[in-house]
Design a binder for these strands. Structure first.
Lengths: 173, 173
DNA sequence: ACCTGCTGCGGCGATTTGCCACACCTGTCC
DNA sequence: GGACAGGTGTGGCAAATCGCCGCAGCAGGT
């Protein structure tokens, strides 16, 4: 499978690219929006892995452009700080799946191949942990507050310092 | 708008129904899967609010049936313990939007009318505090575990002793 | 009687939180 | 320019909380 990796973090991108190559993919890479579009035009990939945070710009805006350019492409969004509204927005814009970092190369490949992780899951009794729920809610409120940490902390009823400390940690699995 | 409310929790369903009626909706209600399907056939609603947890059965399986029965219906999933994979699965199965409890009647109505909540939501929304959300989720999981504190603590990913201490305190306002 | 599982409670160290302070930056207003 | 307000990042420190241990009691099944 010919895959385009759009990700600004160099180390993460190269390691993921290597892992995908080892699994038999032809991997093209791009580190920003303009490179991504030109590379997509040139390489005509069957699969795309798109990071949501591309430096200053938002990867979300690339989804419709990529979808229009390559209607048949398998488009996977990969993000470190995800939330349910942002996941829904991504699929509304044309993404096929939405993964959270850290995601294993196997997970990414499974998503690229369209093996639905959700269909394989028995979908029974997997209640989210308290930490996970807290993380999702924080992301939701933070998004609602336009990224304003002080306002989000006030809305959440916690200290601004505490919110900052929570944001500085990894999302719970 | 003619709305069908599928929700097993009686108190939550009636309050939401009242709130929607007050906002000019014609509200039909169902508390289980079979009642939901027959009511959907009879009332031909334009909007459906579907709870994921319908007693023992999973509300997820109803989505394709409802979608097949009413292709044009606006189908909203409302769930207490949401996660990104389950949200994606719901929209893949045919849901239009996915809300988390506690959701205000205004949020539900906005979702039913197709106003994209993620973009149209006013920043000054009455978001629940972290403590309140935590308390609600604990109550829900504890109920799902049949009141078994040890199992609920394991599902929540916290220590049993911590759960007991949290339960010993007053619910946040 | 025996074992298993759940519950309630106490204690202790490690972690987290709330609350202060301070410095830095970016706008805005006079 | 200078003052000012609002947002952000960082540090420190006491207090609260959490995780983990133990123990005892009590129900249910063998």
């Amino acid at each position: 499978m010919r895959v385009l990796l759009i990700e600004d973090d160099e180390s993460f991108r190269t390691t993921l690219a290597l892992a995908l190559k080892r699994r038999g993919c032809e991997v093209h890479q791009a580190a920003n929006a303009t490179a991504a579009m030109s590379e997509a035009r040139a390489a005509q990939p069957q699969g795309i892995v798109l990071d949501m945070r591309l430096g200053s710009s938002n990867g979300m805006v690339l989804i419709p452009e990529l979808r229009q350019l390559l209607p048949q492409v398998r488009l996977i969004v990969l993000t470190g700080y995800g939330s349910i509204p942002s996941a829904l927005e991504a699929v509304r814009l044309g993404a096929d799946d939405y993964l959270l970092k850290p995601a294993s190369a196997d997970q990414v490949l499974a998503a690229l191949e369209g093996l639905d992780g959700s269909s394989a899951r028995p979908a029974a009794a997997d209640l989210p942990s308290l930490a996970r729920l807290e993380w999702e809610h924080i992301q939701r409120v933070l998004h609602d507050c336009g990224g304003n940490i002080s306002h989000a902390a006030a809305a959440l009823g916690i200290d601004r310092r505490t919110l900052q400390r929570k944001l500085g940690k990894q999302p719970p699995s």
